[in-house]
Amino acid sequence: MVRQNKKILEILDSVRSEKRFELTEIESKSILNFVSVPIIDTRLADDAEAAVRFASAFEYPVVLKIASPDILHKFDAKGVATNLTNEEEVEKSFKELLRNAKKYNAHARIWGVTVQKHIPRGIEVIVGAVRDPIFGPAVMFGMGGIWIELMKDVSFRLAPTTKESALEMISEIQGYPLLQRFRGGEHVNLEVIAEIIVKISKLISTYPEISEIDVNPIFARADDAIAVDARIVLRHD
């Protein structure tokens, strides 16, 4: 735990020394990995050749996503390519994602493209955290993917929270029945999601320099849950 703490502080320090407030996807995922949030292994490729190399190491199919601190909504920017099954598709998608990103925002800083394994989708949920000026850190759970934007189907608790409260948060959202009746009676593993909520609530409570966390989407499945994307933002003051 002490070692993990040291590694997290190293990442936070290096981000601040570069006068950045937003962590890259890779940095965000590393931190989540250190606090044992199940997260998909992801690499940053700065050219198509590297992307192909990572893709074959992960085994096909893979997912490519644009890596830019200026693009929050990757889908809107056509910055995601899923279910790529061979070298040619990876090479082609790499170039396409860069083109799309430039078209979406000509001034966007582009760090490259991330590569990760394409995994079977589960129900998409989000776990997040913010720092409120009056009440301090708070943790959020909701239906993820596009649902967070459209429906705002979320629940909050002050952080850190307990597993008991986390389970209550899950049961409070409108989409709760979807989590209970997933694929013909099978329900998603709510315990695992509750544990992620608790871990994220502890993360923002432990590191006062963090102001916002998005773990979105998390694929919630019958046996487990795995986070596919993440974003951590630091305080400006």
């Binding site: 989000i126 913010v130 409120d132 009056i134 979320v154 909050f156 102001s211």
Partner: peptide, 26 residues
């Protein structure tokens, strides 16, 4: 609404009322 600039989905839906609600529940 919360005064802070939202850089995440979470912050964009975390209005002051949502946080008050959470605080009251806790």
């Amino acid at each position: 609404e919360s005064a802070q600039r939202a850089l995440s989905h979470t912050a964009s839906v975390a209005g002051s009322d949502e946080i008050f609600n959470a605080a009251f529940k806790d």
